[in-house]
Design a protein around this nucleic acid. Structure first.
Lengths: 202, 202
DNA sequence: CGTTAATGAGACGATGTAGTGTCATTTTCA
DNA sequence: TGAAAATGACACTACATCGTCTCATTAACG
């Protein structure tokens, strides 16, 4: 997604400074994401990964060892950044719910889930990392807001609420059958889900 | 899974009868499932598929053309058989719900979903087939039973009910993080889901 | 300023695997 | 009974792609 790093793209020979080295590493990890998301682990070639990062294969192998290690490093790196942006922290439960819907339908998260589901046999630990930093965190957020805005006795509804927020729409999205919803759709669906569980604003 | 076909394994030369041909084709499709489920589309080799079906590559190519066509034929073939067994037709809504939970957690359906999600970019039509013959059919069954046992005004709850029946447990199952539930767990969870939506037996 | 680390460029070897060709063999079908 | 279909066995081609190697080049570092 983000083709531009903080430091301008490094593309020259010679020994790099420490900062350049870090920038290059970040650049590889970042572009690897989009390549893996687009092609999957099996179909993405190392040449493709190198070209996307504007680096040679030589560098990739020097940095990460091999393709699997790069993949693992990428997912680990992402597991940190994937968590909900704190921007939604101060909204209402309704707003948070709508935001979560938009987030889980994003190309980034959908692609990551597809990738990890596909490779869950070969990279079991990645699935755990993704779930912990993704769904589990979303549910925790919902629980916080429910306690603050509806009362502690409604907290157990956080998980079913999350399930309803995703719903069939998200299953179809994972299968590539439906496009992501727009903001209005997300808001409407959030309201509806809250109603179903008796969490609607009365 | 089912290594034994109805007709004994065909392993001889010479021109086969029409029945033998059909049996061989079914055998290839059946063993292809287990191979693809185990290795994924990319990692499964045609030699592996041939060996599993006790057939030579030559025959596979004669029957299906190429690897992609075999994969497509397999999913098409399965989409028909994957639908709920009619055995649950005469039970209560509670029993149907519990049965659906067990079914969607089965190795077969979970593996199929993983496969199709992984290849959704390359085989979009397979995703549609799987959804239509899987989830969509489950929801339709639920709707029928809800109308018959609870009243027509509750029919719109069929879809959210299905979402709750799957819930986080099923998402974790897809990621390989949780084993399938047992019958008691499934029944308990079904009751709980029905309660949440006001569909519980009172 | 010389040494050396790090890289670009791209050729290269090794390997795995999709798909085909050949030939003998066995069985069906006319 | 004879021709043709279908298959097993398996060598073989074609090709993609992982990972390494060589060499020149540039800049960091002592």
């Amino acid at each position: 997604m983000a083709e531009e790093a903080i430091v301008p793209a490094v593309r020259k020979r010679g020994r790099p400074t420490a900062a350049e080295r870090r920038a290059r590493e970040a650049q590889i990890l970042s572009t690897a994401l989009s390549v893996f998301l687009h092609s999957g682990f099996g179909h993405a070639t190392v040449d493709e990964l190198a070209a996307a990062a504007k680096v040679t294969k030589r560098t990739i192998y020097a940095y990460f060892g091999d393709k699997k290690a790069l993949f693992a490093a990428m997912v680990q790196d992402l597991a940190v950044g994937v968590s909900l942006d704190a921007a939604t922290d101060h909204g209402t439960l309704e707003a948070l719910a709508a935001n979560i819907i938009l987030r889980v339908h994003s190309d980034e998260l959908v692609g990551l889930h597809r990738l990890v589901i596909a490779e869950s046999g070969r990279f079991p630990e990645l699935a755990q990392a993704l779930y912990t930093n993704g769904d589990a965190r979303h549910i925790a957020r919902l629980a916080e807001h429910i306690r603050a805005e509806r009362g502690v006795r409604f907290v157990p509804l956080a998980e079913p609420l999350f399930s309803l927020l995703l719903g069939e729409r998200h299953r179809r999205r994972l299968l590539g059958l439906t496009p992501p919803p727009g903001p209005e759709e997300a808001a409407a669906h959030a309201e509806w889900a809250l109603e179903q569980l008796g969490l609607g604003r009365h």
